[in-house]
Design a protein around this nucleic acid. Structure first.
Lengths: 350, 350
DNA sequence: TTGAAAGCGATACCAA
DNA sequence: TTGGTATCGCTTTCAA
């Protein structure tokens, strides 16, 4: 806790009897030094407990080795493997990832963009495509590579990898419809623009199929959690007790629905079929296991990070394909398995 | 995508026809400027889309407005409200939180400490008290406030707030013992030092009670998840089918155990009682609901952040109490409710 | 209220 | 292989 000044590069230089440049090189380009000097400097560095000031080095070299990542949430497991994938690519390349959790708020996102850009990152990775005008303007004006993930758009800021959530919602309904369901409910939480698109896809599918949705949709303004799944499902049941299938905007709600069924003595999938979204780990562990729409979160993270690496390390050229649709697949498990159906099976889309 | 240089403070100054200092003041101390000039500068800032270079400003002012936070995981919901609490205190004060996820690896932690210190944070918040010698040395040498959370120790680096995990494990066993259980199993994942302490507490309690634990402990080297709960519980059942209670090192394993019971047609809590750890949200939603040891994660985050704020903003004095034990409480829910028992009840410790 | 000059801690470029 | 010098973008005295 001594608050004596931290050692600087010059301190090391003086102590080792060399010039500051030499110390800098001992760290960045050790091969440029004679073995003798290198060793002397390295010893001094350790002795003084010297840690390079990244701010100063970034300022001088105009290479910050920082990539900014904005996620809307950390609560659910969704952004975990995504973040992990990004770091697994970037960290070994010596790049630090600055993460900002904006909790599904575009205002917070705007502030986060400004803050992160203040660190002069070499690239930015955004979740979703729904940034405000100002956010987009700042991002564009920064002149650095920007990757929007998780969703697809016709007008990407720069690069884009994601999936069509409306199509996913649409497909989920048709999947259930093909199994004979007609009263298909949808549980969802407001606030997440991608969830809204899934909802829109659900609605369109129901419309196309000529199925009424009155009383079949439950929507909460709060952040979703498992308990909310039970509440929303109960709301739907109160409106229409004959619901035969439920499509939820995420797996937490699906699990909550499953629990509510258990509580009420309703059998899954015989009385009610359930399809979640994201295919989190617990979907394969519950009783019955939960069918879910699987999304390629890791792939999106990896692609985003690798594209960035190529741009800032390599030629500076953008990848051939600037927009990628990774699609989705419906994983069939116990919560929708029909009496005659088989074990596990994934239906791939897009 | 234009890669023309980003606007600097001097650019703004030139454009507005004032000196750089004036622009700086328009941002940091607007009240020092005449209304007229302030407006002119602010207009120019917006026109040029100027975003201050935080690196340069931090370097010049030697105030980075950064606090480094190291967490061992983001997968489970455990570190989410903790991080949220920290940011809720620090962000409004204009302090950025740099988070590093080290995935329960002390080597990664060591690297993360070095990296984060490279950013010259004004304080560091560490999860746990099990840093390597070198990590501790770097932390001490940095001269900045360091808060260790989540666990307690006699030799804190600086400040410390947490709970006694050994005592928690001990209490969980006695809690189950008081309900008549004798064959109490423990499921846990290696790698987390706090989980190891809970395990030790379990072992001590069983020893003190004269209860043998052979075949009652299942331990996995991998990161735990819900599915693993089922696997570990199955392992225990294979060794000893007469297990009457299970204490797990976290809630994921508890949920997995619950599912395994459902799969095997074992009734909870009649055939098997379950106590988890952390009291995550889903514990209150499952069927039956899960009893769990509740930990004050938010409180720990808040205290850590507030203490830091006081030190770096205020007098620089450490808080009166440099070590805080926040204790824990056992939340009784359906998975341990005895036939005669009442609704909800929390037992508070420490 | 405004500005000029001197650094913050490192790196890049050019010499030696 | 080693070192001097200017500079990165901003803030902090100190003066006007």
């Amino acid at each position: 806790m001594n608050s004596k000044r931290r050692a600087t590069l010059s301190d090391v230089a003086r102590e080792a009897g060399v010039s500051p440049v030499t110390v800098s090189r001992a760290i960045r380009h050790p091969e440029m030094l004679s073995a003798q000097l290198r060793e002397r400097v390295e010893t001094t560095i350790r002795a003084l407990n010297y840690i390079p000031n990244h701010l100063a080095s970034a300022l001088a070299s105009t290479r910050t080795q920082i990539v900014g990542v904005i996620v809307p949430s950390l609560t659910n497991g969704v952004f975990d493997d995504y973040l992990g994938a990004i770091q697994d690519v970037l960290n070994p390349a010596g790049i630090q990832v600055l993460v900002s959790n904006v909790r599904y708020s575009v205002e917070q996102e705007e502030r986060a963009v400004e803050t992160l850009l203040g660190y002069h990152p070499e690239a930015m990775i955004m979740a979703g495509v729904d940034q405000t005008e100002r956010s987009q303007q700042m991002l564009r004006g920064s002149g650095i590579p920007v990757v929007q993930t998780m969703d697809v758009t016709d007008r990407p800021i720069d690069l884009n990898i994601g999936l069509d959530h409306s199509a996913a919602g649409y497909a989920a309904v048709h999947y259930l419809h093909a199994q004979g369901h007609r009263k298909i409910a949808h549980l969802t939480a407001r606030g997440d623009p991608r969830a809204r698109r899934r909802h829109a896809g659900y609605q369109k599918a129901m419309d196309d199929l000529g199925l009424p949705t009155a009383g079949l949709v439950a929507l909460s303004p709060r952040t979703s959690d498992v308990a909310m799944g039970g509440t929303l499902f109960s709301d739907v049941l109160a409106e229409d007790p004959n619901v035969s299938a439920v499509f939820t905007c995420n797996d937490d709600l699906a699990l909550g629905t499953l629990f509510e069924c258990q509580r009420r003595g309703m059998r899954v999938p015989d009385d009610v079929a359930i399809v979640g979204f994201n295919d989190l780990e617990f979907c394969g562990a519950s009783v019955p296991t939960l069918s879910s729409v699987s999304t390629e979160r890791q792939k999106m993270g990896t692609w985003a990070a690798q594209s960035i690496l190529e741009i800032i390390r390599g030629s500076g050229k953008r990848p051939a394909q600037r927009s990628v649709d990774v699609g989705f697949s419906i994983i069939t498990r116990g919560s929708t398995r029909l009496p005659a159906a088989t074990t596990r099976d994934a239906k791939k889309f897009s």
